[in-house]
Design a protein around this nucleic acid. Structure first.
Lengths: 239, 239
DNA sequence: ATTCCAAAAAATGTATAAATTTCTATTGCA
DNA sequence: TGCAATAGAAATTTATACATTTTTTGGAAT
């Protein structure tokens, strides 16, 4: 008998999954700019792969709302706009409020412990890698995601959780696109602690209020970022 | 000058979209049975097309929750279960309750008129094509979908509406899979009228109560259908 | 300046090759 | 003789290369 008889999930060895991960990272980080055309030739050279895995990846990303496909004229990076940011945020507040209430209604000691752990771990990692200027910390992002996922994780609906995940991804891209100099001034750690505190005390109204305020504040900061949303459209550069 | 300068949406002329539509119809109708393996060779012969358009269609259907993909071992028709039916129904009740409330909060005369029209048109078409036994009427299904889409259509969130559409599709498959002899005994037309009446009177609580009861009743009928959910699993048929 | 036509570019689709999984049958051991 | 493990063969999924179709672009003629 071996210790490891057979890996249940033998890792996504397929090339399509690998390209999907890389493309996704480049979309979320903004390295692939909004509304940019994703030409096959360019993608094949950049990611060193064939069309089949690429099409597979692009189709999945379309479902995630990060890529847009126009029949017979190719794939494009999903465009951004103030209107969409506002709508996504509004939707996320509605849906996560719902999911959080249901989670709290179905609360268990094990779930509360998960939440305490997630919040604790998040609080122990710095938001930015650099002390002088803001520099995205992947570890923090990962733990942040887990924390918010845990909040709604007890609601009892896989599809609802998955939908929240999609909204989170799309909004995450906005955050990354924004220069977000204002972020350091916010005490997001305190906000996370305050949400958890309300959850543990069983006060659903307060927990929802704090959670939605948390999301709204983030959106407000990005909405004010002039760099990401061009005021006047200048398609033909002063022609 | 021509009358039609350029068609804004020149119809999905691509083969992938065509296969997607046909596959989708066969999945929703149950002609492709749950948990069945979708082999490329079989699909290519059945739908008379190549692999590229097929993979494209299958990937989209995976995003719709009608097909499941397992890395390196192919595509499968999404399986059904009592647990999933219950969870989908629960989620739909939650999310559509939310969307309906927001629609009503943002109500306009134009929207109310849309709703009246949708309900009227639905009421004028027979639920079944045959009077003696139940036979699915595509026209009724189409109008039914429009009616429910209209109810939540004023909520102001495209992504929320799209999510509701996905849930509707997945649940529609359960309805089609079920023999549903009990359906004729229900007066679904009255239920639709009652929901609309509550909406027009501005009573959100009542409208939501009637809408969720409407969905729950449908699920309860299907849950009792012994034909779709095998009690004991008999994988090796008395071999 | 506008329209029409031709050439180029790019997306969609087909056929073929490579890699992985699954099935089958044989071998080894109790 | 029966069971488990293993190795080889078949089938199937995944990836590549090539062909076709559609869109876009550029230029010439009206």
């Amino acid at each position: 008998m071996e210790l490891t008889t057979a890996a249940p999930l033998p890792a996504p060895s397929t090339q399509a999954s690998h390209v999907y991960d890389r493309l996704r990272e480049d979309l979320l980080s903004g390295r692939l700019a909004p509304s940019r055309k994703l030409q096959m030739r360019f993608l094949m050279e950049t990611y060193q792969t064939g069309q089949t895995p690429l099409r597979e990846a692009l189709n999945r990303l379309t479902a995630d709302g990060l890529v847009e496909v126009r029949e017979q004229r190719g794939f494009y990076v999903k465009d951004v706009s103030r209107a969409e940011l506002a709508e996504l945020t509004k939707t996320r507040c509605w849906v996560e409020a719902l999911a959080l209430r249901e989670s709290m209604a179905a609360s268990t000691p094990a779930w509360e412990e998960q939440l305490v752990l997630a919040q604790h771990r998040l609080s122990r990692v710095p938001r930015s890698l650099s002390a002088t200027e803001f520099e995205d910390n992947p570890e923090w992002e990962k733990l942040h995601r887990i924390y918010h996922r845990t909040l709604i994780g007890q609601c009892g609906s896989q599809s609802l959780i998955a939908f929240c995940g999609q909204l989170a991804d799309q909004l995450y891209r906005y955050r990354r696109l924004s220069i977000s100099k204002a972020f350091p001034s916010r005490h997001v750690g305190d906000e996370h602690a305050a949400i958890m505190e309300a959850v543990l005390s069983g006060n659903a109204d307060l927990a929802v209020k704090r959670l939605t305020a948390h999301y709204q504040r983030t959106a407000d900061v990005i909405l004010q970022d002039e760099a990401i949303f061009p005021e006047l459209r200048r398609e033909t550069a002063r022609g």
